[in-house]
Design a binder for these strands. Structure first.
Length: 197
DNA sequence: CCACGGATTGGCT
DNA sequence: GCCAATCCGTGGA
């Protein structure tokens, strides 16, 4: 089942806690890419100085002010794209950064997008999508996908539940200096595809 | 107008 | 462990 609008329009921390284990899917003219979300971070422009929306609406962040269920993509350090799931009601300015997934479909295409070859060692496979920039590179997600409606059929999320032995853990967010104390990074404990342990 | 810094990554010391 | 790559929004002159 594809996740519907109502899943996304809830409060950002509620959606964040429900988003782990869901499957990110990209259908690129029939070429499928998919992966289970194993790590994410919440950003809330109303209170959180690290959020892109903290200073109000700009051309870059306007998608993040949409109602929930849209994709917000930005360029990090001028080098890497990172993708976010917009949450909440219109005008809220909240989103969830997808930091790592466990690859499912389209693995060979992901390896090609990331490394320009077809095979990786077993060890290298754990680094295929273990970071926000890596996920976008592997899936072929760029700035042109910012604003895509996640209730459409190009990029969307499928419902799925955590495995019986999987537990959610929470920590501080990675790589930020402002509002760094907030415990808004959620991840599946001991999952081998995390960006960090 | 210019300087600065950032939700990252991979390669080199 | 350290650092360059490289775009763009923000803030100060």
């Amino acid at each position: 089942m594809k996740l519907k609008r109502a899943f996304y329009t809830k409060d950002v921390l509620t959606v964040a806690s429900e988003l782990l284990g869901k499957v990110l899917v990209k259908n690129e003219r029939g070429k499928m890419f998919s992966g289970r979300i194993v790590e994410l971070e919440a950003y809330d422009g109303r209170t959180d100085k690290a959020a892109h929306t903290y200073g109000g609406k700009t051309k870059r962040n306007e998608v993040m002010f949409n109602e929930g269920g849209y994709l917000y993509v930005y360029l990090s350090y001028g080098v890497h794209y990172c993708c976010n799931v917009v949450t909440g009601t219109e005008g809220t300015g909240t989103a969830i950064l997808i930091r790592a997934v466990e690859p499912l479909e389209g693995v060979e295409r992901m390896i090609m997008n990331r490394f320009g070859k077809k095979k990786l060692s077993e060890k290298e496979m754990y680094h295929l999508t273990s970071g926000p920039g890596k996920v976008c590179k592997a899936f072929g997600i760029t700035k042109g996908h910012s604003g895509v409606d996640l209730t459409g059929d190009k990029i969307y999320l499928m419902d799925s539940v955590l495995k019986k032995d999987e537990k959610i853990a929470v920590s501080k967010r990675i790589g930020i200096t402002k509002s760094a104390h907030l415990p808004w990074r959620y991840f599946i404990k001991n999952n081998p595809y995390l960006s960090r342990k």
